[in-house]
């Protein structure tokens, strides 16, 4: 029996954000915007969903008089990502075999 894929991560933009955050200590909103190629509105909505699920933490601060949003993956987010990758492996292995 296959493990269920986390519906929160099984979407293009949210998975991109989590995959970016898994490899870094923290990333700015602009960095995520550039790397994903998403629109500001869309990425804001998806970040909010990930934050509400406890997968990421968002910090808003001022830097050089400009507002700066910084995102960081939480331990819960890391765990969810690892589970997602495990479940994905199962699907891919079964389709290869």
């Amino acid at each position: 029996m296959f493990k269920e894929l986390d519906p929160l991560l099984h979407s293009q933009l949210r998975l991109s954000v989590i995959s970016l955050l898994i490899g870094v200590k923290s990333a700015t909103f602009t960095f995520l915007l550039e790397k994903t190629g998403a629109t500001r509105g869309n990425i804001s909505i998806q970040l909010k969903k990930l934050e509400e699920a406890g997968y990421i933490s968002i910090e808003k601060a001022f830097r050089d008089n400009y507002p700066q949003t910084t995102c960081q993956i939480t331990p819960k987010g890391v765990e969810a990502f690892e589970k997602y990758v495990d479940a994905l492996k199962d699907y891919l292995n079964s389709s290869a075999g």
Partner: peptide, 9 residues
Amino acid sequence: MENNVLKHE
């Protein structure tokens, strides 16, 4: 980037 549901690959 759209927020589509994905294929596994």
